[in-house]
Amino acid sequence: MSEHPDVIATRAAYDTVADDYADLLRDDLAESEFDRAMLDVFAEQIRRAGGGAVGDLGCGPGRIAGYLADRGLDVVGIDLSPRMVEAARRDHPAVRFEVASMAALPFGDAGLAGALAWYSVIHTPEERQDELYAEFARVVRPDGRLLLAFQVGDDVVHLTHAYGHDLDLHTRRQQPDRVRERLVGAGFERLAELVRQPVPPEKSPQAYVLARRV
């Protein structure tokens, strides 16, 4: 089956910026107390439920997977970009990373205790978002957890230059109420939601949603 043009463009963009992206964001969590708080709650709930494999879906250079692994989780990172996976394996050699698409995850049905999509649903067009959430629901076991992070808004941003490179990448901001609808439709229930104001150079509010697979 042929790939959607947005998938090809997203892979090409992140292959292009992988090394500079990894360098720029390597220590970003140290300055992001809200990010750490949501990740810590996610990790605590996974541990409290008995643990199990956790998928970092759209893991980029592995900084979130590495953070969660340091907190005792059994993390597997997947990313569309081979160059991002190379950077992740280099920077976090103790964590397993694979090249794969979020639309066709390399996990069995109910194979994960939890999953997170950390600013990675933002490149999938509106008309295919429901399919993405259905795939998340397929791989997360009943009572498992799903953590999402995304920019809040209604617009589509076309990036032509970022991280020191020319590229062609679309990012789609999301509305929390629409995300909640998609979660419920896919078989999740919302446990917690946080929306914070932007911190420069961010240009829009940032949202985090923690959900349980029912």
Rank of each mutant, 00 (worst) to 15 (best):
G111N: 03
L112E: 07
L112Y: 04
L112W: 07
L112S: 09
G114F: 08
G114Y: 05
G114I: 13
G114D: 07
A115L: 13
A115C: 09
A115G: 15
A117S: 13
W118T: 12
Y119G: 09
S120M: 11
V121N: 07
V121W: 01
V121E: 06
I122N: 00
I122E: 00
T124Q: 09
T124G: 00
T124W: 00
T124M: 08
T124F: 08
P125S: 09
P125H: 09
E126P: 00
E127R: 14
E127V: 14
R128N: 10
R128I: 07
Q129M: 14
D130M: 11
D130T: 14
D130Y: 03
E131F: 05
E131P: 04
L132M: 14
L132F: 06
L132R: 09
Y133W: 15
Y133N: 09
E135Y: 01
F136M: 11
F136Y: 10
F136D: 08
A137D: 04
A137K: 04
A137S: 04
A137W: 02
R138N: 11
R138V: 12
R138H: 07
R138F: 05
V139W: 05
V140C: 01
V140G: 07
V140K: 00
R141D: 01
R141P: 05
R141Q: 12
D143T: 15
D143C: 00
R145N: 05
R145A: 11
R145K: 14
R145V: 11
L146V: 10
L146K: 10
L147P: 03
L147H: 09
L148D: 08
L148W: 05
L148N: 04
A149I: 11
A149M: 12
F150G: 09
F150Y: 15
Q151F: 10
V152T: 07
V152I: 10
G153L: 01
G153P: 05
G153D: 04
G153H: 05
D154N: 11
D155I: 00
D155N: 06
D155P: 00
V156F: 00
V157E: 13
V157L: 13
L159K: 13
H161N: 02
H161G: 05
H161F: 06
A162I: 09
Y163W: 15
Y163T: 03
H165G: 03
H165L: 01
H165V: 02
D166V: 02
L167T: 05
L167N: 06
L167P: 04
D168A: 13
D168C: 06
D168H: 12
D168Q: 11
D168R: 12
L169R: 03
L169G: 02
L169M: 05
L169N: 01
H170A: 15
T171Q: 14
R172C: 10
R172M: 12
R173E: 13
R173L: 15
Q174L: 13
Q174K: 13
Q174Y: 01
Q174W: 09
Q175A: 08
Q175I: 02
Q175C: 00
Q175G: 01
